[in-house]
Write a protein that binds this DNA or RNA. Structure first.
Length: 268
DNA sequence: ATGTCGGCGCAACGCCGA
């Protein structure tokens, strides 16, 4: 990024489940303005392809690619004054899957996979089965990405709390599709391919939440969950400088139930 | 079990998904 003739080489990448990109547009634009991420992964657009607010984002300096869907799901990748080369639209492994949950691009020399993993509730049931199948497809595609040997960031709403440290009251979530043993195991199997959970690496023992339910004043009570994650390929692990959650955004008027999460990577 | 959101639809509030 070039500002006042000074070259800044570090890169800030963020992920944000906006829960309706048009309903949250003022919040999204304010957050972009205040935190100036270089690359952004968005989930839960809840907008059809033609209703994505591309003009507003361009006016804020962001190029965008997106995969919309009426009412639900939807993912996008934004890049500040930078070219985005789309490499995938839809997660491989099931041509009949019509839900818009994965988009991937080459940006600034990094492969950015933006994902919105299925919620899976009510569980057990077909929605949990779909979630577990989707996880298997993600594991398969993640293996392929590692084989390329390129720097890769898999960012998004995984709808999984990986450990008890990631839930305000673990005992209440045992049967929930976001915390069931088989779902946590699926996340663990994925990470053990060789990925780095960036937030957990920077904060090994701390309670870090990225989501607070709208119900029962969850944000006020800090009854949160950590479900939005960054997985880094092995060569990016040593470039991880910092990471965090923009918690205050969750407290803004008309906020999403998720907060934006970010990482900063050093240039090579 | 409950709670609160955004988006949807024979257009107003009940439903779905989260």
């Amino acid at each position: 990024m070039l500002i006042d003739n000074i070259l800044y080489l570090n890169m800030k990448i963020a992920t944000y489940n906006v829960n309706g990109v048009n309903g949250r547009l003022p919040v999204l634009l304010r957050w972009l303005e205040e935190t100036a991420p270089d690359i952004v992964c968005l989930q839960e657009l809840k907008a059809p392809q033609e209703k994505f607010p591309v003009e507003s984002l361009q006016a804020a300096g962001y190029n965008a690619i997106w995969h919309g869907q009426k009412s639900w799901n939807g993912v996008a990748i934004l890049a500040h004054n930078t070219e985005i080369k789309e490499t995938k639209r839809g997660l491989p492994g099931d041509p009949d899957d019509e839900q818009s949950r994965y988009i991937e691009a080459f940006v600034n020399g990094i492969v950015i996979g933006c994902l919105y993993l299925p919620n899976g509730n009510p569980a057990p049931g077909p929605k949990l089965e779909y979630k577990l199948r989707w996880f298997e497809r993600l594991q398969a595609h993640a293996t392929t990405l590692l084989k390329y040997g390129m720097p890769v960031v898999l960012a998004g709403d995984y709808n999984v709390m990986p450990t008890e440290l990631d839930v305000y009251k673990p005992e209440r979530w045992i049967d929930d599709a976001l915390f069931r043993p088989e779902v946590r195991q699926a996340f663990k199997t994925l990470v053990e391919q060789g990925w780095t959970d960036a937030i957990r690496k920077i904060y090994p023992n701390e309670t870090i939440y990225t989501f607070w339910d709208y119900f029962r004043n969850a944000y006020g009570r800090d009854a949160g969950l950590r479900i939005d994650h960054f997985l880094l390929s092995p060569d990016l692990d040593s470039r991880l400088l910092a990471a965090g959650v923009n918690r205050d955004v969750r407290g803004w008027e008309k906020s999403s139930d998720h907060a934006p999460v970010w990482i900063e990577l050093a240039d090579l």
